Amino acid sequence: MAKLPPFPGTTGRRDWRTALDAIRKLLADGDDTTQVFRIMRALNVGNSPMNYARLISTTEGGRLAYERTELAALFAQPGFARQFAPGTVGAAYCHFLDSTGYSADGLAEVSRINAEEDMQHPYAWFGRRVRDTHDIWHVLTGYKADESMGEAALVAFSYAQVGGLGWALIGTAAALKSIRVTGSTLFAKAVWEGYRHGRKAKWISGEDYVKLLGEPLEAARARLGIATPVAYLKAQRELGAELASYLSTRRAADVELAA
């Protein structure tokens, strides 16, 4: 595979001080999504060139890179998510947006703490592509977005898919803290399962997402090799909603489980 030059203006050094400060804040408040992007910027050095090289090494990936569609803008168009037939990935994504209250361009707004996010550069475009499909990955994997365990499991899945020590730090820290907070390894096992499933699945970042949204959901999962998250579903049942969401101030502020 081709080796591409580094992201312009970067030193190639990881900023562990910033990353550790951000992970402390994220573990105290799982809704503080800003900290995720601080961690990504601090630790995911060299990740964009690696993934962009992988994308353009295929004919389909080369076409996607040539077209350079901005997915947040596309997904946020009025009525876009409602055009897909029942049972499709797109219909499930539409339900996801309706049920969570999230928006297609919500992560884009939060991520703009990083100056590189809006840079007119192929690497930055690929980074936006991963960011803008995060919620679709929730739909495909079955990991809930408004739940700490679901986010941690998807973070581990994402690390397996696209690399980057930022993802690894978040998933590992959440899993380790869960053992102390919940008194159980169920949460941690769900996170580890997310990593294993990400390793086994097809590389989803190389997909044409407009086509993917039109596929039947179960058929898409089978084609992409995304397995049923058995350990995650077991942990949901046995831990209950409060412990599965222990990092979330929205879901658990009254019981102070993030303390």
Rank of each mutant, 00 (worst) to 15 (best):
Ser158Asp: 08
Phe75Cys: 00
Met40Glu: 03
Ala104Arg: 14
Arg24Asp: 07
Ala173His: 05
Ala28Cys: 02
Glu116Leu: 10
Asp132Lys: 06
Val155Phe: 03
Leu107Pro: 12
Ala244Phe: 09
Phe80Glu: 00
Pro229Thr: 00
Tyr209Gln: 05
Thr18Asp: 03
Ile136Thr: 02
Leu154Phe: 12
Glu116Pro: 01
Arg237Tyr: 08
Lys200Cys: 08
Ser205Ala: 13
Arg24Thr: 03
Gly150Thr: 09
Met40Thr: 00
Arg63Ile: 08
Leu169Gly: 08
Ala91Arg: 14
Val191Ile: 10
Arg112Phe: 02
Ala65Leu: 06
Val162Tyr: 06
Val191Phe: 00
Asn44Lys: 01
Arg221Pro: 06
Val181Ile: 15
Leu26Ser: 09
Trp137Tyr: 13
Lys3Asp: 03
His121Tyr: 04
Ile170Cys: 04
Val36Gln: 09
Leu165Glu: 10
Lys3Val: 14
Asp105Asn: 11
Gly62Phe: 15
Ser178Ile: 07
Leu97Trp: 08
Ile226Thr: 13
Gly164Leu: 08
Ala108Thr: 03
Thr133Glu: 01
Asp132Val: 07
Tyr66Gln: 12
Thr88Gln: 07
Val45Tyr: 00
Ala73Lys: 13
Asp31Gln: 12
Arg68Asp: 01
Val130Asn: 06
Ala241Asn: 09
Ala72Glu: 05
Arg68Leu: 05
Gln83Asp: 05
Ser184Lys: 12
Arg196Trp: 08
Ala188Lys: 07
Leu186Gln: 11
Ala153Gly: 11
Gln120Gly: 01
Glu116Ser: 13
Arg250Gly: 11
Tyr93Ile: 12
Val162Ala: 05
Gly150Phe: 04
Ala244Tyr: 05
Val36Arg: 09
Leu4Arg: 02
Leu27Trp: 01
Ile170Pro: 06
Ala173Leu: 11
Ala188Arg: 10
Cys94Lys: 04
Tyr209Ala: 13
Arg128Cys: 13
Ala219Tyr: 00
Gly127Ile: 05
Leu239Gln: 00
Val89Pro: 07
Val155Ser: 03
Gly163Met: 13
Trp167Gln: 12
Ala252Met: 08
Phe37Lys: 06
Ala152Thr: 09
Ala76Gln: 04
Arg251Pro: 07
Arg13Trp: 06
Leu224Asp: 08
Ser158Phe: 02
Gly79Thr: 04
Ala219Leu: 15
Pro5Asp: 01
Arg223His: 10
Ala227Gln: 12
Thr10Ser: 14
Ala220Arg: 00
Gln120His: 15
Ala201Arg: 11
Glu207Ser: 15
Ile226Asp: 07
Lys189Leu: 04
Ala219Asn: 02
Tyr195Asp: 01
Glu242Ile: 01
